[in-house]
């Protein structure tokens, strides 16, 4: 049994098999989807268990602070397609389930999680997914867990897909319509639009980035850091609200206040209700939290 296994056993024991319980990560977005009223707080194990650059995977405790993992991966020229506030943990970022700003390059957060070692509502440990990047063995529990706010199972340890860090990154901006910027670029990593100005993040081989930057200069774009994004989030409805910044191609608007809750059909609500009841019949995991009570 490795040290990682012993810590997972402690985690399982902490979660137990009765009483309302939740995992506290960095607490940076603790109110997303509601507060887990009265639930006992436990911590997930932290630290890298195994980092295998040649496999492009890393096994890490869910309680690991994301920035620590990012630092350790950077030593090997690697990154994970996850972003979170300062102090947020790997598990917390996965459970909140918001894709990184650079999602157009690194993929959605649903594509990052390969395997999750969990404790179920019944107190039993189980593993979702598998250690390899390519895997269609059984049902895709990992994707179901991402964004579930810990309401289906509590995640203690994960295997994440890593990616090579691009050789060069460059933000540019100019008062140009995003469509024109998109036409002039190949797979930009991020595009932001505030209704007047478009920011674009180019990443890749240095000469390619410089070449595209040259093309964009002719459209009036120059090197410029991205804007400080407002704290609220909403879903793109085709109209930018006042002070909003659209993440082009991802459907997210960063705005001063959270937008309204998305509409959900009765059929999907029933299916989601069955899902939660199936995994947690007694409602002990993160009671009070609802993944459908999240603006975007």
């Amino acid at each position: 049994m490795s040290a990682g296994d012993a810590r997972m056993e402690d985690f399982r024991s902490d979660v137990g098999d009765s009483g309302a319980v939740c995992v506290r990560g960095g607490g940076t977005r603790w109110g997303v989807g509601g507060w887990p009223d009265g639930a006992r707080e436990v911590s997930a194990p932290s630290g890298i268990v195994t980092l295998e650059p040649a496999e492009m995977t890393v096994m890490v405790g869910a309680g690991t602070v994301l920035s620590d993992l990012v630092g350790d991966l950077a030593v090997h020229g690697l990154e994970v397609g996850m972003e979170g506030p300062v102090g947020s943990t790997v598990g917390g970022v996965l459970m909140v389930g918001r894709s990184a700003l650079r999602r157009l390059r690194v993929g959605t957060i649903a594509d990052v999680l390969l395997q999750a070692d969990c404790v179920g509502a019944d107190g039993a440990a189980f593993t979702a997914g598998g250690p390899t990047v390519k895997n269609v063995t059984g049902y895709d529990l990992c994707r179901l867990l991402v964004g579930s706010l810990g309401t289906l199972a509590l995640v203690g340890r994960v295997i994440l897909r890593t990616r090579p860090v691009p050789a060069r990154s460059l933000w540019l901006a100019g008062e140009v319509e995003p469509e024109r910027v998109l036409e002039a670029t190949y797979r930009p990593s991020c595009m932001l639009w505030d209704g007047v100005r478009t920011w674009v993040l180019l990443e890749g081989h240095g000469e390619d980035v410089d070449g595209t930057a040259g093309d964009l200069a002719r459209l009036g774009l120059t090197a410029m850091e991205p804007p400080v994004l407002p704290p609220g989030r909403g879903r793109w409805t085709g109209q930018l609200s006042n002070g909003g910044v659209l993440e082009v191609g991802s459907g997210v608007v960063h705005q001063p206040d959270d937008g309204g809750l998305p509409t959900v059909s009765d059929g999907v609500r029933r299916l989601a209700g069955r899902m939660r009841a199936s995994f947690d019949p007694s409602g002990r995991l993160n009671p009070g939290r609802d993944p459908y009570r999240v603006a975007a």
């Binding site: 389930g97 918001r98 894709s99 959605t108 957060i109 649903a110 049902y139 895709d140 529990l141 994707r143 179901l144 991402v146 964004g147 579930s148 289906l152 879903r235 793109w236 191609g249 991802s250 459907g251 997210v252 998305p262 959900v264 059909s265 059929g267 999907v268 299916l271 989601a272 899902m275 609802d290 993944p291 459908y292 999240v294 975007a296």
Partner: peptide, 19 residues
């Protein structure tokens, strides 16, 4: 009949599309 997932953006609620 249900529609799972979104044309744009992260999943609303559980990622039932992914599942």
């Amino acid at each position: 009949v249900v529609v799972l997932g979104e044309e744009e953006g992260d999943s609303v609620g559980y990622d039932l599309r992914g599942a």
